[in-house]
Write a protein that binds this DNA or RNA. Structure first.
Length: 472
RNA sequence: UCCCCGAUAGCUCAAUUGGUAGAGCGGGCGGCUGUUAACCGCCAGGUUACUGGUUCGAGUCCAGUUCGGGGAGCCA
């Protein structure tokens, strides 16, 4: 198969193609306007940048009457001609076409779901297969890509290894969250064990298997060999969560660094977030300008401040004091604050939005509200956990220094009524060359809504999976 | 899962105390114009989410269901 030489619209618009040279442009029609002066204007997108290229189609084209005048939004065309300075306002250059081939027609223009107008995001979710053709989802797609590449660039440049932790896991010890089962058994005819329960030995993996809720336990193994590692992949939670911040399938980034303590961990989180946002501002100015114009006025300024200012850091105990003072000063909280309680959304929002006004790292939570693998502090009451809270989102990062002492880890496992044997390989890490280490998890979709000002994680992932919805 | 709100043309929304179903955009046709959210005229387009109830009469009131949104919990 040969590919006809063609030009991306971003290169044509950026001046990488000299004026008065012949080019071929391929893409999808956004709008068509006819002039009785004997020409039509076609706005064409190809996804390579935010802006469209204007195609000037003269009436002399052999298919002008028969085809060009019937082109509607969504048609796919290949236009060949000369890139020229525009005679009109609104664009610097345009394609003076001498040939326009309609490659793909729109069957029924009357009901084409994506009109060149404002649609609600709720509606566009119902046409998720066509929403990438809108300005907003084109911009989101490019921003998502740019941030993904920035993530890999940051870790690569800082000597991390990207570790592909498994999606399917047979260890039922990943901790928090309901998990999706993975099975090839016939649900209508399950093999039974002697007690009447399902005989999982007959299943594909010979035991119960599920989709991962975190790559952390696996990536710790590689951390204690490669020193600096991270995961970046899909994660699954079968929670019945119906909010603008939860998905059943989402992408998470989990770095893990040997010999790091909690403060190193917070330093890493800060340097990491600043790096990817700096890259985003540098690379996707066109899309970020769109988000600032149409979605969230302050999104660029917010990121610019973010990469300049240092993170506010406080302990859980300090956070509780701040909240108690706020309550005493008349601020109404639905849930009362006491030392030992988990921070509610309203508490996190107060801290990050009102008290600090930017992201804040809260560290050293009471051990009773955190996971077993978090390192017990010397006070015996708190663990070396940290949450990064962001305005408008809440928890964007959750992390900790891990418990590297086997006796302390075992005591925690016992305390929580967990079964030691289930964690045999995780415990082995503490028997063979254990070292202090720390890491965190960053929700990628939450990062995207923070960066763009979009309000729902369902609108920053191509095909959102939520309770009751796996269409497309 | 809990609380609150909503569902009317392809899309975004109107419709008075219950009394003939409307507009803009999009689409078709025509006019005008180097146009650009173009503009002007005409036309087409509806089982008012679904099921049942109250009523002479229901888009409107009541009950249930489905789907969607906001908030909460869980968390990233």
């Amino acid at each position: 198969m040969t590919t006809a030489p063609h030009t991306l619209i971003k290169h044509a618009l950026a001046g990488r193609v000299a004026l008065d040279t012949r080019v071929t442009i391929r893409g999808w029609v956004r709008t068509r306007r006819d002039s009785k002066a004997g020409l039509s204007f076609i706005n064409l997108h190809d996804g390579s940048c935010f802006d469209a290229l204007q195609i000037v189609a003269p009436a002399e084209l052999s298919n002008y009457e028969s085809e060009i005048l019937h082109v509607t939004t969504g048609c796919a065309i290949v236009a060949t001609g000369t890139l020229v300075a525009s005679q009109g306002k609104g664009q610097t250059c345009e394609l003076q076409a001498d040939g326009v081939e309609v490659v793909g027609w729109v069957d029924d223009p009357d009901t084409y779901p994506v009109a060149p107008k404002q649609h609600t995001f709720e509606y566009l979710r119902e046409v998720a297969h066509l929403r990438p053709r809108t300005n907003t989802f084109g911009a989101i797609t490019r921003v998502r890509h740019a941030l993904s590449m920035a993530v890999h660039r940051f870790y690569h440049d800082n000597d991390f290894c990207w570790v592909h932790t498994p999606i399917v896991t047979a260890s039922d010890c990943e901790g928090a969250g309901e998990m999706f089962r993975v099975s090839t058994l016939d649900l209508a005819n399950l093999p039974r064990a002697e007690g009447g329960g399902v005989d999982w030995h007959r299943d594909f993996f010979g035991k119960e298997a599920r989709l991962t809720v975190s790559g952390q336990l696996n990536v710790e193994c590689y951390c204690l060999a490669m020193s600096k590692v991270y995961t970046f992949g899909p994660t699954f939670r079968a929670e019945n969560s119906n909010t603008s911040r939860h998905l059943a399938e989402f992408w998470m980034i989990e770095p893990e660094v040997a010999f790091n303590d909690l403060h190193d961990n917070a330093d890493l989180a800060e340097a990491f977030l600043k790096s990817i946002f700096r890259d985003l501002l540098n690379e996707r100015g066109d899309d970020m300008k769109f988000f600032a114009d149409r979605i969230d006025k302050g999104c660029i300024e917010r990121l610019e401040k973010f990469v300049e200012a240092s993170f506010e850091r406080m302990t859980y105990t300090e956070a509780v004091d701040i909240l108690l003072r706020a309550a005493a000063g008349g601020h109404k909280f639905e849930f009362p604050v006491t030392w030992g309680c988990d921070l509610q959304s309203e508490h996190e929002r107060y801290l990050t939005e009102q008290h600090v006004g930017r992201p804040v790292v809260v560290m050293n939570y009471p051990k009773d509200i955190k996971a077993f693998y978090m390192r017990l502090n010397d006070d015996g009451k708190t663990v070396a956990a940290m949450d990064v809270l962001a305005p408008g989102i809440g928890e964007i990062i959750g992390g900790a220094q891990r418990e590297e002492r086997l006796d302390v880890l075992d005591a925690r496992i016992d305390e929580l009524g967990l079964i030691k044997d289930d964690y045999w390989w995780y415990r082995d890490l503490r028997r063979y060359g254990t070292v202090p280490h720390a890491g965190f998890g960053l929700g990628f979709e939450r990062t995207l809504i923070y960066a763009t000002g979009m309000q729902n994680v369902r609108d920053v992932i191509p095909f959102p999976r939520t309770p009751g919805n796996a269409e497309f």
